[in-house]
Structures are given as C-alpha cells and as structure tokens.
C-alpha cells in the first residue's frame, strides 16, 4: 500500500450533547463514512485540553477533530465559545510549530447533523490523504 493510499488516522473529540449525538445519528441513519476516525467522548468541547490534541498528533494521528454544539447552543451555555477562542489560537500555533493547520479541525455539529458529521469525516479523510502522512519517517518507525 503506497503512502498516499494509506488510511489516515483521525482522533475525534466529540461533545456528548451535540456532536457525539450527531455521530450516533449518522449511525442510526446508516450513513457510512470512512473508518479513519476514532471518537473520544467528552462532556463539552470546552473539556478538550490542547495538550490532548498535540498528544494525539505526536502519537501518530494524521488529523484531529474537535466538535461541539453550535455557538449559542452549548449544553453548558458558554463552553463552546471558550473552545472557539482557545482553538483559534491553538490552530495557528500548531501550524506555527509545523503541524499543518489543515490537519486540525473544529466543527460545530449538532445532534441532528448526522450527515454533517459523516461529511466532515469524508472531507477530512480526503484532505489528509492528499497531505500524506504527517511525518513519513515517524510513520515508518511506528510500523516497525
């Protein structure tokens, strides 16, 4: 399997109330999407520590998705506003350290947006496939 065809690995941090429910909805509606994503459930997107994100990248994730309720719809009323602020900064900072910002996504996915979740995974998978592995050497080392 050439590098370009390798299935990228995406770690998805999904808030329990909206995005995790949205991903569940994709399931109940049998909306298929690539097997690239693995989900970690968090109560709120505001629970996602940037250190988790970098750790995922360092352990070989090609992409990281953080998803939460749409601004204004947060189950905890304000959590996602803080998330947005924090990751506006973190996305740029990761890029500055050489982790291409296209590898990180924050998305607002409501509990009714199963298709949007599936589409996000498809899009991200395609984009990550284009970008190739983050660090080819590291990937090889990992494979050994």
């Amino acid at each position: 399997m050439s590098v370009a065809e390798r299935e990228p690995k995406i770690v998805g941090f999904l808030c329990n109330w909206c995005s995790y429910a949205g991903a569940d909805l994709a399931g109940t509606s049998r909306t298929s999407y690539p097997t690239s994503v693995r989900v970690i459930r968090v109560p709120c997107s505001g629970r996602v520590n940037p250190q988790f994100v970098l750790r995922a990248f360092q352990l070989g994730a090609d992409g990281v998705l953080v998803a939460g309720c749409h601004p204004g719809d947060c189950h905890y009323s304000t959590g996602n506003y803080f998330t947005r602020r924090r990751f506006l900064l973190v996305k740029r900072f990761l890029d500055y350290l050489g982790i291409d910002q296209r590898r990180f996504r924050l998305r607002w996915i409501s509990a009714s947006e199963g298709p949007k979740f599936a589409e996000t995974i498809r899009e991200m998978t395609e984009e990550l496939r284009q970008l190739g592995p983050r660090d080819a050497a590291a990937v090889e080392a990992h494979a050994e």
């Binding site: 601004p71 204004g72 304000t78 506003y81 803080f82 947005r84 602020r85 924090r86 990751f87 506006l88 900064l89 996504r105 924050l106 998305r107 607002w108």
Partner: peptide
C-alpha cells in the same frame, strides 16, 4: 485573561 472570556462575535472560522 483573554482565554478566560469570550465574545459571541469572536472570529468564526470553524462553522
């Protein structure tokens, strides 16, 4: 601190 507050109209680039 700037990360301890937010504005509803902060830049939206995540959609």
């Amino acid at each position: 601190e700037p990360l301890g507050i937010y504005r509803p109209d902060d830049p939206e680039e995540f959609a």
